[in-house]
């Protein structure tokens, strides 16, 4: 048992911090519902930051740390699936990687666009294909998620079949979900604590009111739990750990979703404050893999049979 970052991990996270500094804040006067950057994406790919899992001395925990750190940015980056799931299927699959469950075509898909790799996970197996124009339907410009999303219209019959167990991909997907949620939760918490420490009402910062302090402290407890459970699940490779991490992440996301905007008062209803860039990604993750109930059932099956 050793839970401190090793030298490699510290160095990689430092590199990421330097590289992403220009993307650490929202561009002036930008009030987008979702932020993306092709330049950022290209820099991450070029630096090899999304491929650390395959490097023997780095492995899945480092990959999870990378995903967590990138999720803290206000920009949505397709890092989780590429970093933590793709190496198990085929490290050469073109990004972005879009994970979908068989038979769930009514659900919007993150990062889906023509040219993206779609991975379809069903009980019987794992297939993938490169999305063409015909398979992507735009979601319109009034999407209430802080991710770019689109709809998949069909799964082509000639999708490539991968020789990998569906359960293993679901496990890695849950780790990816938890690691990304951990970063989103951490950044959202940071954003809110800054605001409530500065915003004055009744002649004092609103952070000095216990009604807010205690709820934020409980949110810190939940956020910390998701962080460590995600890393442990990445490290252990255990299906139960992964399902518990995903479950806890979705529980935490649900808990903070309204609270954080509430703490910002009327500012919490605007696009002028960037909070939604994290919370409206968390909202999306809340529904992934069937939501809390399904992840709880998966955990129960893995732990107790």
């Amino acid at each position: 048992m050793h839970l401190a970052l090793n030298e490699d991990q510290t160095q990689i996270l430092d590199f990421i911090d330097s590289l992403t500094r220009p993307y650490a804040t929202v561009p002036l006067h930008d009030t987008s519902f979702a932020l993306t950057s092709d330049a950022l994406d290209a820099e991450l790919v070029e630096g090899g930051f999304l491929d650390v899992m395959a490097v023997e001395e780095l492995g899945p925990v480092t990959a999870a740390l990378v995903v967590e750190r990138l999720a803290r940015l206000p920009f949505a980056v397709e890092a989780a699936a590429s970093s933590l799931v793709r190496p198990l299927i085929d490290p050469a699959l073109p990004r972005p990687l879009c994970l979908v469950e068989e038979g769930q075509l009514r659900r919007p898909v993150r990062f889906l666009r023509p040219g993206a790799t779609v991975v379809v996970v069903s009980k019987s197996g794992v297939r993938s294909f490169t999305a063409g124009q015909a398979q992507v339907r735009a979601a319109g410009d009034e999407v209430l998620y802080a991710y770019p999303v689109a709809y998949l219209t069909e799964v082509p019959g000639d999708a490539r079949v991968h020789d990998v167990a569906a359960d293993e991909i679901l496990r890695a997907w849950r780790v990816a979900l938890a690691a990304e949620a951990a970063g989103l939760l951490g950044a959202a918490l940071q954003s809110v604590t800054t605001y409530v420490s500065e915003r004055q009402q009744f002649g004092r910062p609103i952070a000095t009111f216990q009604a807010i302090r205690h709820r934020l402290a409980e949110d810190q407890v939940a956020t910390n739990g998701v962080y460590w459970m995600a890393l442990r699940a990445a490290g252990s490779g255990d299906a139960g750990d992964a399902a518990l991490a995903a479950l806890h992440a979705q529980e935490a996301a649900k808990r903070v979703g309204y609270d954080y905007h509430q703490f910002l008062g009327a500012m919490g209803m605007t696009l002028e404050h960037p909070l939604h860039l994290w919370t409206y990604r968390l909202k999306f993750l809340t529904g992934e893999l069937g939501g809390r109930g399904e992840n709880a059932l998966a955990a129960a099956a893995a732990i107790w049979g």
């Binding site: 459970m229 806890h248 107790w304």
Partner: peptide, 13 residues
């Protein structure tokens, strides 16, 4: 089963 898993998640957190 769902409640049991929720408890396990809190224990492991």
């Amino acid at each position: 089963r769902i409640e049991a898993a929720r408890c396990a998640a809190l224990c492991e957190a």
